[in-house]
């Protein structure tokens, strides 16, 4: 005699075996950052007011995730450099917008900034002479030098008439040697 277990019936699988409450991974513990993930997008005007709004949002967002102060400060400094660069050089007439996506997964904070200005690769700005005497110092180019040094990874792409800068920060790398 062939036994047909009740659970083998397709409807038994799709109804009775499905849990009523979906279990979620526990992200409430502060020590569980590796397992956390989050993603949010914000669009701001390409003006200094927009830069302030993006900075406030990124600051609150990374604080809420409980990211270490060291990585938050590196990320927020870098963010200011790229945003102010877009506003200063990129978007003409102040009519453009900047889209900021904040993502955190597997111990890596990623900030992606896209704007619809003319093609501009900030990574091609020449590095300043950081050993020059004070009389010869000019602030130009310092910002991008800081971006390169403070972000663990930074890339530029021109995609569908938009500039996209993506920066990544490892949350648990510790203090970097300069």
């Amino acid at each position: 005699m062939i036994r047909r277990p009740f659970a083998a019936h397709p409807r038994a699988f799709t109804t009775a075996s499905r849990p009523l409450v979906t279990e979620r991974p526990d992200t409430s513990s502060p020590g569980q950052k590796e397992g956390m993930s989050a993603r949010d997008t914000l669009t701001v005007p390409a003006t200094m007011a927009g830069v302030r709004q993006a900075a406030d949002t990124a600051s609150a967002w990374t604080d809420r995730l409980g990211l270490p102060v060291e990585v938050r400060r590196r990320a927020l400094t870098t963010l200011d450099e790229v945003l102010s660069n877009i506003v200063r050089h990129g978007v003409r007439g102040g009519a453009g917008v900047i889209q900021m996506t904040l993502a955190y997964e597997a111990g890596v904070l990623e900030i992606e900034l896209t704007d619809d200005a003319d093609s501009f690769n900030p990574l091609l700005v020449p590095a300043p002479d950081v050993g020059a005497p004070i009389e010869d110092r000019v602030p130009g180019g310092l910002g991008i030098a800081l971006v390169r040094a403070l972000a663990d990874e930074v890339q530029y792409e021109r995609d569908a008439n938009r500039n996209r800068v993506t920066m990544r920060f490892e949350a648990n790398r510790g203090t970097r040697d300069i």
Partner: peptide, 20 residues
């Protein structure tokens, strides 16, 4: 100070030049 970016460094450079 939480953090300083190049916009802040620029002002420190102005201060240094002025002091000199």
């Amino acid at each position: 100070v939480e953090y300083i970016s190049s916009a802040g460094l620029r002002i420190m450079l102005i201060l240094a030049k002025r002091a000199r």
